[in-house]
Structure formats: structure tokens, C-alpha cells
């Protein structure tokens, strides 16, 4: 799933109008997770996107800081601000595959890596078992990177999209 970098304008048409495709966001991105529509994308050609499942965002907020046109908004490097303003997507857990959910062991990898802590992902039972994605999740995709299950029961989807598993979702912000 292609998502806009953190802090991108909510309306994707406004984002495309604002982005001048200078590539500064990608140049300052430490993990190089920002990619571009190279030879595709139509009128969004040369605009940045993130595929959090391939390379996750570390939520350093450097891209917004450097963006000259405010296509990526400046967001302070604070947990509360990030939770409030970043809305790339939301993680989804497939409860028919995830190890704890099918009772095949205690894992907790996703909860341990989550940079937003309990506001991003929480455990259902005794705080250690069966992960539950919370509303605070911004879709950085670090949980997907560490998930040990080969078929990746945890994925990031755009917030407005249909979920891969029916549970907590706030709908309707990104139009793709």
C-alpha cells in the first residue's frame, strides 16, 4: 500500500498541487523509506510515497521540517503531536493468522517496537497477549517490519480503506 509521508496534506489533490517534486523529503529521510512515482502515477508523477511494509517510517518528522511548500506539514517531534497530526494509515491485524490470536505462542514484537507505545498498539490479555491496534496508530509500519510471521498478519492500510480485519477503525481521511 502506497501512503503519503507523515504530515502530508489530508486531501491528496491538495498534496499534489502543493508538491513541487524537489525530493528534499527523501534526501533528509534517514531510513530512505520515501520513494517516488518514477515512471507512473499520472499527474502525481515524481511525488513521494511510503510503502511501510517494505521500509517503515521512523517518524522522525524531518521530511515535514524540510518541505519548502508545506505539502508535508511541520510537526513537532513529540509523541502527542505525532499521534494527533500524522495520519498515514493504520495497522491491521489478521486475527486468523497472528500467533497469539490463534493461540500458538506469546509474541509481542509489534507492541515492543511501536514508537507510540500503548497508544499505538496494546495487548488484550494481561498486557502481553493478543495485540490490538489502537486509534493512536499512525501507520509507520515498524510493526510490519518486525512481525515474525512469514505471511505478515499485521499490515498497514490507509485509514479510509476497507480493513483486513473488522475492528477499531476511524474512517475517512485519505482519499485513496
Amino acid at each position: 500500500m502506497q501512503l503519503r509521508p507523515p504530515g502530508a496534506l489530508r486531501d491528496d489533490h491538495a498534496f499534489m498541487a502543493a508538491c513541487i517534486s524537489c525530493g528534499l523529503c527523501a534526501e533528509v529521510c534517514p531510513p530512505k523509506c520515501i520513494q517516488f512515482h518514477l515512471r507512473d502515477g499520472g499527474s502525481s508523477a515524481n511525488t513521494p510515497y511510503i510503502v511501510p511494509e517494505e521500509k517503515s517510517c521512523i517518524l522522525c518528522m524531518k521530511c515535514g521540517e524540510v518541505c519548502p511548500t508545506n505539502a508535508l506539514e511541520k510537526i513537532a517531534y513529540k509523541k502527542e503531536e505525532i499521534i494527533k497530526q500524522v495520519n498515514m494509515g493504520i495497522a491491521q491485524i489478521d486475527r486468523l493468522t497472528c500467533y497469539p490470536w490463534v493461540n500458538t505462542g506469546i509474541c509481542g514484537a509489534c507492541g515492543n517496537i511501536c514508537p507510540l507505545g500503548k497508544q499505538g498498539i496494546r495487548f488484550e490479555f494481561a498486557g502481553i497477549y493478543r495485540p490490538l491496534v489502537q486509534d493512536g496508530c499512525v501507520g509507520c509500519g515498524q510493526c510490519v517490519e518486525v512481525c515474525p510471521h512469514p505471511s505478515l498478519p499485521i499490515r498497514v492500510v490507509a485509514s479510509g480503506m476497507q480493513s483486513i480485519a473488522p475492528h477499531t477503525l476511524k474512517s475517512g481521511s485519505l482519499p485513496f
Binding site: 498541487a17 524537489c22 525530493g23 534526501e27 517516488f36 502525481s44 515524481n46
Partner: peptide, 23 residues
Amino acid sequence: SVMVALIYPPAIIGRELYYAIAL
């Protein structure tokens, strides 16, 4: 969307050098 960026050689070169080297 900023269409002039697609046909403006200095912008293209800056971008494409980044694509070629970093991506």
C-alpha cells in the same frame, strides 16, 4: 499538479540524479 516540473531540465536533472544514486 506542478506540470512545469516535468519539462524543466534543471529540475529533471536534480531529481533524476537523486533517483539514480539514492534510489
